[in-house]
Computed example of a mutant assay.
Amino acid sequence: MINLDGNIVQEENASLSVFNRGFAYGDSVFETIRVISGKIMFWEDHYFRLMASMRIMRMEIPSSFSPEFLEEEIKEIIEANDLATSPARIRFAVYRLQGGYYTPATRDIGYVISAEAMENSFYIFNDEPYEIELFKDHYVNSGLLSTIKSNNRAVNVLGSIYARENAYDNCLILNEKKSVVEALNGNIFLVKGKTIKTPPISDGVLNGIIRKQLINILKKTEDYELEEASISPFELQKSDELFITNVAQGIQPVSKYRKKEFENKVAKDLLSKLNVKARLG
């Protein structure tokens, strides 16, 4: 079942026009949301990031788009797919209504919400081998547009193909200044001693939900020192640990980058703290 503009319809009936602006111009933003037994994880952060993304894209935000209304829309599609007592992954996409070419005929929007089952209720630590490499064929630009989740994901798609063709589990993306920005599917953190470093939003980093949660956790602990600063590719092999964060996986430790093999002690510790925070809401 799919929620199409507030109407619950069968997946085969949830059709969009070939002139849809999300398809024609990438004129769309989206959120990937984790729901556990009907409870939306980190809902406030998702809601405000979605609103910020729509404003950056100069979309007209409907007056009905309150946190309560959208929460009910998500819960309704969860129930329609019999996932009310199961872990689920939600994709909430907002697109500008069709009309016009590069210049839209309207700023009004439509939306689609889909749901699929997930295996685990909370984040499970994955210590399987996980090798990464740099993707240097294309770069992301440091700036506001790179911080939102839009349908313009060409670099991520091409990087993912490159990773698969070369038997890597993931790749790191660079910006135009040749600084490490993020992984293909999440934010990157580097551990050196007691210092945990992650690139700043100003480098063109996706404003990740789990990134924000971890930063808040790190600011409240004396075990580690957080540093938000640009990361040079040369720092990667000098670090003790690397790990990737996103809403679907939580924390994914990196085991190998080129000739360097990494530990995963800090990643494991932070994942337990993240699960506690998720349980508490």
Rank of each mutant, 00 (worst) to 15 (best):
F122I: 08
E68M: 01
E176Y: 12
F92T: 08
P129S: 08
K197M: 14
R89S: 05
R107S: 12
L83T: 11
N151M: 05
E73K: 15
I132W: 06
R153K: 14
V191P: 14
A105V: 04
I201F: 04
S114W: 00
T106K: 03
V180N: 05
P200I: 02
K178L: 00
S179C: 03
S202E: 08
G100S: 08
Y162E: 04
F135Q: 00
I109E: 00
K197F: 12
G159H: 01
T103I: 15
Y130V: 07
K177Q: 15
V94K: 09
I109N: 00
T195G: 05
Y102C: 07
D82H: 01
G110Y: 01
R96L: 10
E133T: 14
T103D: 14
I113V: 15
R164K: 14
V180C: 02
I124S: 06
K149L: 12
V112M: 13
G143Y: 00
Q98D: 15
E176L: 09
A80D: 05
S86K: 12
R89A: 01
R153Q: 11
K136C: 12
V155Y: 06
V181Q: 08
A88W: 10
Y168K: 15
E131P: 03
T103G: 14
G143R: 00
I78R: 02
L134M: 03
